[in-house]
């Protein structure tokens, strides 16, 4: 019961954080909403006995990534509110109706049995220790782990390709300074 209460509280917190992140006008509020969501997810990991992942979640996401976000937001400037006016008048009500309908489908589907048969192989005993995670990550999941190499390379190459394009055209390669 206690586990359920903790889950319910932090599930609502995660949803509220995600909602705030989307609708807040001030980017700092958005960042703090995202922080709430990420921290709540860390609590889910604790509930699932994945203590190491929970620690990683807090250190990397709520720690490092969010600090980076805040740093960028502060650099760009926090006083600029985003213009959230919409030119499609029916977009928002239709979106809300579809979202409610989608949530309804998920609730109806999820109210039945989840695992519809006996799982035919035993889930490895993940006690959340570093050893078991490493064993899974570098044993079973080696190829997907290495597959992220491609994604990270695309991030690097793509960022260089798109960001080197200034307002006046492609910037020269050895241009260390920002054009003004």
């Amino acid at each position: 019961m206690a586990e359920f209460v903790v889950f319910a509280v932090f599930a609502l917190a995660a949803l509220a954080g995600a909602f705030v992140m989307l609708v807040a006008r001030n980017p700092v509020y958005s960042a703090i909403g995202l922080l709430t969501t990420m921290f709540s997810i860390a609590v889910f990991y604790v509930l699932l006995d994945a203590h190491f992942i929970a620690a990683i979640q807090v250190i990397i996401y709520t720690g490092a990534v969010m600090t980076l976000f805040m740093f960028v937001i502060m650099m760009i400037g926090v006083d600029r509110d985003e213009d959230t006016s919409e030119r499609l008048p029916y977009q928002r009500p239709i979106g809300i109706i579809l979202a409610i309908g989608f949530a309804g489908v998920i609730v109806v589907a999820g109210s039945g049995a989840w695992v519809t048969g006996s799982a035919s192989f035993a889930v490895p005993d993940l006690n959340g220790t570093i050893e078991t995670i490493a064993d899974e990550l570098f044993g079973t999941w080696t190829v997907p782990f290495l597959g992220t190499v491609f994604l990270l390379t695309i991030a690097a190459v793509g960022t260089i390709a798109l960001a080197r394009y200034g307002p006046t055209g492609p910037r020269p390669v050895d241009d260390g300074e920002e054009p003004t």
């Binding site: 489908v105 998920i106 109806v108 589907a109 999820g110 109210s111 039945g112 049995a113 989840w114 519809t116 048969g117 006996s118 799982a119 035919s120 192989f121």
Partner: peptide, 21 residues
């Protein structure tokens, strides 16, 4: 072993809600 095909060959699925979604 234990994959999706293996699951369907060993299991009679009665409630499809989550699976279907």
């Amino acid at each position: 072993a234990g994959g999706i095909r293996d699951f369907f060959s060993n299991t009679i699925v009665t409630e499809r809600g989550v699976l279907l979604v």
